[in-house]
Design a protein around this nucleic acid. Sequence first.
DNA 1: ACGTGACCATATAAGCTCATCTGGTCAAAC
DNA 2: GTTTGACCAGATGAGCTTATATGGTCACGT
Lengths: 243, 243
Amino acid sequence: MARAGRPPQDPARHAERAHRILDAAAELILRWGYDKTTVDDVARRAGVAKGTIYLHWKTRDELFAALLRRERVLMLDRVREAAPATLGELFGSLASALLHRPLLHAVLLDDSEVLGKLTRLKRQRPSIGGLELGGPFDAYLRELVKLGAVREEPAEQVMVIGSIFYGFMFLPGARPESERLPDDRVAELLAETVERAVGTGRALPPADAAAVARATLDLLDALADVARRKLATSMSPAKERVQ
Amino acid sequence: MARAGRPPQDPARHAERAHRILDAAAELILRWGYDKTTVDDVARRAGVAKGTIYLHWKTRDELFAALLRRERVLMLDRVREAAPATLGELFGSLASALLHRPLLHAVLLDDSEVLGKLTRLKRQRPSIGGLELGGPFDAYLRELVKLGAVREEPAEQVMVIGSIFYGFMFLPGARPESERLPDDRVAELLAETVERAVGTGRALPPADAAAVARATLDLLDALADVARRKLATSMSPAKERVQ
DNA sequence: ACGTGACCATATAAGCTCATCTGGTCAAAC
DNA sequence: GTTTGACCAGATGAGCTTATATGGTCACGT
């Protein structure tokens, strides 16, 4: 109640505060799990009043959605920075980035420890690991097939890649600490495995290799673009949104 | 461990009844889950009195253990019959057999729908998918490395294989029915993927290829032998057992 | 205009009771 | 000698009550 001052309508400050709230939420959810993290906790940790949170999001769930969307954008940005030039590198970078974002990792694995009662509900969603399996990724794969970087039958290759990716993301958590490989090594092995599993094995002519690298970055840009647009929806003030 | 008391009047009939009870248990557990399946249900379905079940096993849990051990033996027998001759074929056969044994599949995936409150408890166990990752399988892998069938760093390859296997066993269950491949095709793709992921790619001289096939069958024999011995322990009358 | 925190209706958790169920036993019946 | 099912103590679950916590709102102060 002691807080004075009426900051003018400063969008930058407003956005900064939203991010501060999301930071608080991320930290608390990771520590206590979604069920045990209250809006009041988040507000306190972010140094705002509870009501302020509802100036940004209509419900607690929307706050969480915004958080996940931001995680996604951050992850994709990191992948994009790594500038993967092949399918294997793409998934290696994805893995590496995902392992640095425990919330997304928890969503992928449907970890009830973290997600609480949200666990089963998310199952409905068709997306796996942040990649829509029909859609831009599918087009990307077909492109690589054309370029001779990936074998035929893209529909099956999608399943193969998905399985490998999921297995690599899951298994380390199921093994005793002592036998666990460092995250970076896991990512490297994943990259290698994907390449061997669905690659053609032939070396590509430089022009085609460049085309693959280009297609990969284009895909990431497209995914990041969608992700950023969704995030923007989640970050605009609650009142402005219709639904 | 001399036999206390007298052997049953007709051992064959006795064993047949034990299997009938396990059949009943398997069916009910798959239908209702472990938690909702009572000893009385099993007895009724098997056409015996409840007390009879306790002539075979000391506790409900031991009945379940026997069931799983039988499943394991049956699965390994099936794999052995397929006579896999390479590492890839070994895992293809394992996958195919596992997909035909829903109980083992549930154990691998830690499916709480089926296992109920047993879910988290089994987590402790070091075994994944019925293969002890240190032990006979490890020796087998090293042998294949020596024969030039598998790349170096067997410790990492174990992790790679495990991840791939788990991913392939898990993913189909997470996808919509419409996009799901037939079990046989999944097994084939898994075989191919494992081979590409950890194989050397070179064709082996016939003598070495034969050695690989031999080692594979030897491994299966060894695993089946252990499994059968454990099963035997679980199938001997409850009173004869010490622990 | 903006932000706040007291406020409210509802949700959740804890504690308790009571009836039913279930794993396991055993004296009696084959 | 083998099998059975009535039987028992403890587990489980439904139902209810009470106390606390929580998501979300809003009149008010700045």
